[in-house]
Design a protein around this nucleic acid. Structure first.
Length: 743
RNA sequence: GCUCCGGUAGCUCAAUGGAUAGAGCAACCGCCUUCUAAGCGGUCGGUUACAGGUUCGAGUCCUGUCCGGAGCGCCA
């Protein structure tokens, strides 16, 4: 269903044409925007002001003419003309209530899937092989992941690429150094640990900078490597494997999904890029190097600046690799929108590469390339973040410290409140809060400016921080628990929660289809899968699905997976059946059960087959909901597809208190915010929204008792709580942050 | 020298060309017999770096100046 704003906008467009004819161009698009200030209502239309001049009429008269042609009474109270000619709109309370009720039934919380999904490539994280991930990789990884999650949720097909630095001069240097200092490391896996490797890298770099002869050896080593010499290649492979394992532990910890496709991948394509450039007749030779001269960039003498695409020694550099990557991502990956999440220092580089790519015909007009720049991470002194001894901070240490600090913080608080909690609880809370605090602190700032890293601020329980948001969520869950223990439960909260043991194994991509299928087949299916304990056995299936997805045989992959899982299902049913037959008195009973079960299964399957289109549509959503928060146990329950929700009558919402109205209106803005973020790729907007949602919930919590209220207010407020919780969980999930039931 | 990014409350940051520029932190004053006070209410805080321009309307767009950061031929 279109958003309220879209519907109002449509009405205004009609009214505009009716009032002024279709010749007059619309002064604004859209005509209706959210009100700039709550006191002006919910939406406003400013169209009358710019029309004053062309129509030679007073803006207020124009606004009145517009209103005379407008039919919006089904949504709004009587519109008001304010100030010089603003039209202020206030939604009817019953419209709010209706919208909220709709959202209770909608697992996407009113956020529509984009009508024209794009293939979006998000290039992010991209650490260097043979170095540990450090604080410099933090922002790209966190921001890139969130952008990818948001675009996926909007319904785009997203390819998350890790453009790791696994090629080039540095490898020649490193291999050359290892060859003379630690030859065994070149032939034996894990002969050195990565910490040593990092130290060696520094020594190698030092020698490279100081010793001309070593520099030459390193260059030769690069040539050997690029030519595919066996021993060099093997050494390279060992280095890469070792680094990759280290990266993966960080990615697992932060719940980041990436497809690695490093610089080396494009190596064979580089000569082809040069040919393309030469065919476009834009390559010039200068001092032995092949260059493309750039528009709008000059050197110190004022002459055009070249982009070097082949060095005088015949080697290629990163500009050529980026061009090759662009060519591949457009030609082979068929990307419609290509997003690069790197620090803002590289903005010139990307401008240059994009310019050359356009000139060479690599980059057509219809493909959108976007550099998503971000600022430096600085210490509290405003300088580049370093350890006390001046070393670059390792990402692992940084994450550990955030978790440790929150653990201390938590213990102190528990002591103050005389609470006792298990070690497991404390560890889980500290880990989730610590890691999410690091993520949220980064995401909540405008990414273009530098960001001052402060454990104290990010872990603070007040302000725009993850602990504040997680606390708001935990408060809601606390109400829900208490409500349930009192035995009176609203229909919306009565959705049965799947148990932790069922969810944990489901919370990974492979089992996704299984999860959806289970939802579709209902309790019967869940029982069978549970009894057969075949979740682990599905692991290979999942891998299969993953592989298929990476090959982008999405449709085939899904269909195959559905078939495979259906077969496993049948198998499971048969096995359970067989086991039951071995028990006394059971065979005759089982005949009946068998007839019932198989007819039910067949019926469900037919239903399922007819609804497969819908299933496919639900796939991405389910993936996001599941993957967005693999550890949050109640995740699957609300992600139940709308069709599968029990047919309950939603409570009649009573929105009377100002806190209730403010909260309700805010909940309904989620779709608008996400649309903005989709366009601008600024996750801080989503953070702002979630922070305000938490604030509005806390105000509601203070002023509006939930469980102590009489019906129907009680149910109404419980529904508001439920919607707030779901919105928080979804929003945080899109930031890569899992929620906590209790903290 | 050129290019790019930024300059908003004491601090950290928001603010699609819209109305009286908002939050949080810090400081101060209140609120726990009540669903988690990790909360809520209040007070204080501004010539949006500066000067022009465009516009019915500018923190936002354009030009210039000042200040800060980043980048600028064979590293990535």
């Amino acid at each position: 269903m279109p958003s309220i704003q879209a519907q109002l906008n449509q009405q205004f467009t009609h009214a505009f044409t009716a009032a002024f004819g279709s010749d007059l161009p619309l002064p604004d698009d859209p005509l209706v925007v959210p009100a700039s200030n709550p006191k002006f209502g919910d939406y406003q239309c400013n169209a009358a002001l710019p029309l004053a001049k062309p129509l030679k009429r007073k803006p207020r008269d124009i606004a009145q003419t517009l209103l005379d042609n407008l039919q919006i009474e089904q949504w709004c109270e009587e519109p008001e003309i304010a100030g010089p000619g603003f039209i202020n709109l206030r939604l009817k309370t019953e419209v709010l209530a209706r919208q909220l009720t709709d959202r209770l039934q909608d697992e996407r919380l009113g956020v529509e899937r984009v009508k024209q999904p794009q293939k979006v490539i998000v290039d992010f994280s991209s650490p260097n092989i043979a170095k540990e991930m450090h604080v410099g990789h933090l922002r790209s990884t966190i921001i890139g992941d969130s952008i990818a999650r948001i675009l996926e949720f909007q319904g785009h097909e997203v390819l998350r690429l890790n453009h790791v630095g696994d090629w080039g001069t540095q490898f020649g240097m490193l291999i050359a150094y290892l060859r003379e200092a630690y030859p065994e490391a070149l032939t034996t896996a894990d002969a050195l640990d990565l910490g040593d490797l990092v130290a060696l890298y520094k020594k190698a770099k030092q020698r490279f900078d100081e010793d001309a002869k070593f520099k030459e050896t390193a260059r030769e080593e690069v040539v050997r490597l690029q030519a595919g010499a066996d021993d060099s290649r093997r050494a390279w492979q060992l280095l890469c494997d070792q680094s990759r394992r280290e990266f993966q532990t960080i990615y697992d910890r932060l719940d980041i999904q990436l497809t690695e496709r490093g610089e080396s991948f494009y190596n064979p394509l580089l000569p082809g890029v040069l040919e393309t450039l030469e065919a476009a007749r834009i390559v010039a030779e200068d001092g032995g190097a092949k260059c493309v001269f750039l528009d709008g960039f000059t050197n110190k003498e004022g002459n055009p600046l070249p982009l070097i695409v082949q060095k005088s020694d015949g080697g290629y550099n990163y500009a050529t690799t980026d061009l090759a990557a662009l060519q591949y991502r457009i030609g082979k990956d068929e990307g419609d929108r290509i997003v690069y999440v790197t620090d803002s220092g590289q903005s010139n580089h990307f401008t240059q590469v994009f310019q050359v790519a356009r000139k060479a015909g690599i980059l057509p007009d219809e493909v959108q390339v976007v550099h998503v720049p971000f600022g430096l991470v600085q210490g509290e002194d405003g300088k580049k973040l370093k350890t006390r001894s001046g070393e670059t901070i390792k990402l692992k240490d940084l994450l550990d410290e955030a978790v440790d600090r929150f653990y201390q913080n938590l213990e102190k608080r528990l002591e103050e409140e005389s609470r006792t909690e298990t070690e497991e609880f404390k560890q889980e809370v500290a880990t989730k809060v610590g890691l999410s605090a690091v993520k949220y602190a980064d995401l909540s700032q405008n990414r273009t400016s530098n960001y001052i890293f402060s454990y104290d601020k990010m872990l603070a329980p007040q302000g725009n921080t993850s602990p504040y948001l997680l606390y708001a969520y935990a408060r809601i869950r606390s109400i829900a628990r208490k409500g349930q223990s009192q035995g009176t439960v609203t229909p919306t909260l009565a959705v049965p929660e799947t148990s932790a043991t069922e969810i944990k194994p489901l919370a990974s991509q492979p089992i996704l289809l299984g999860g959806v299928l289970l939802q579709k087949l209902g309790d019967f299916g869940r029982y069978v899968l549970d009894a057969s304990r075949s979740v682990e056995q599905l692991e290979p299936v999942v891998q299969q699905i993953n592989a298929l997805r990476q090959l982008e045989w999405g449709a085939i992959g899904k269909t195959t997976a559905i078939l495979v899982i259906s077969l496993l299902f049948s198998d499971a049913v048969l096995r359970v059946h067989a086991v039951l037959h071995t028990l006394p008195f059971m065979p005759s009973l089982m005949c009946l059960v068998g007839v019932f079960a198989s007819s039910r299964f067949a019926w469900q399957f037919l239903l399922f087959a007819s609804g497969r289109q819908q299933l496919t549509a639900n796939f991405e959503q389910a993936k996001l909901t599941v993957l967005g928060d693999p550890d949050a146990t109640p995740q699957l329950a609300p992600s139940k597809p709308a069709a599968a929700l029990p047919a309950v009558s939603a409570p009649e919402l009573q929105l009377t208190e100002p806190e209730e109205l403010a909260l309700a209106k805010h909940i309904l803005q989620l779709d608008e915010v996400l649309q903005e973020v989709e366009q601008d790729l600024m996750p801080n907007r989503l953070c702002q929204y979630l922070f305000e949602l938490s604030q509005k919930f806390n105000k509601f919590f203070e002023e509006c008792p939930v469980l102590k209220s009489e019906e129907p207010v009680r149910s109404s407020r419980l529904a508001l709580c439920e919607l707030t919780a779901r919105t928080l969980r979804l929003g945080l999930g899109l930031l890569g942050i899992p929620v906590l039931e209790r903290m």
